[in-house]
Simulated scan of single mutants.
Amino acid sequence: MNRHRCALFLLILALPALLYSCSAAKKTAKKQHSYMESAYATLKDAVNEAEVTILNDTIKVLFPEHLLFKKSSAEINEATTPLMQRFGKALNQYDKTSILVNGYTDNTGTDGINETLSKQRADSAKNMLERFDVLKSRIFTWGMGKTNPIGDNNTEEGRRRNRRVEFIILYNYEPPK
């Protein structure tokens, strides 16, 4: 019986700390959600040419494919510079975010070429953001090759849509070590 009383006593002592910790976590999550909602609204307004969506505090920005890259190229069209400048300025207002830049290709070419090109596209987009003072430490790049197509690779229009860079904005992302 003594053990049960001791366990009950410890539970009673620990309960307020547990409840406080849950309450603090909820407050933190609510603050983070508000922060990301504000970032979403700012980005949507700043780069209205892009498709800006939010899901579970993750913001995705997808520019129309013709604005960024030509076929088989990782060079960003200079016409995109003002748009990327507005994008960078908006990102700089939310310095508690990290930007994941995923580069993609269509299905033409070999897997090796597509993986290299998609990584080069992501790196080009990162370099452009750095030109507009987005901190290098906030930007992470990946080359995804021909994976995750958003268009039909059997048509020129679909392949054009698949040649893209997606920007994923997260609250203080820490990459796996």
Rank of each mutant, 00 (worst) to 15 (best):
E37P: 06
Y104N: 02
W142E: 10
R163E: 14
K60V: 15
R163P: 06
K60N: 13
Q120V: 10
Y20F: 10
C22D: 13
N102M: 04
K126H: 02
N2W: 03
V134L: 02
E75H: 05
N172F: 11
T110R: 06
I99A: 00
E78V: 04
Y40G: 08
L117P: 04
T97R: 01
L67G: 11
T147R: 01
G158R: 06
E75A: 10
L11I: 08
A46S: 15
S21L: 05
Y35D: 08
E75G: 06
K26A: 15
L91D: 06
D133T: 14
E75V: 10
F9Q: 13
L19N: 03
K126T: 05
L15C: 10
A90D: 02
S34T: 12
R121S: 03
G109E: 03
M84Y: 06
Y40L: 11
D106S: 04
V61R: 00
E156M: 11
D95P: 11
Y171E: 14
T28P: 01
N154T: 15
L43A: 05
R160Y: 11
L11H: 04
H4I: 13
R161S: 15
R159N: 13
T108W: 03
L129N: 08
S38I: 12
R159E: 13
L170K: 14
R159G: 09
D123W: 00
P176C: 07
L11D: 08
L15W: 04
R131C: 13
D133F: 09
S98I: 01
K89P: 00
Y171L: 13
G158C: 10
N172Y: 12
R121C: 04
T108R: 08
A79H: 12
L10Y: 06
K30V: 14
T97A: 06
A39N: 03
A17T: 03
V165I: 10
E130K: 02
T141L: 01
Q32A: 06
L18I: 14
E157K: 09
T110Q: 07
S34W: 05
K126S: 05
L19A: 09
Q32G: 04
K89V: 09
T97K: 01
G151N: 14
R138L: 08
N153Q: 11
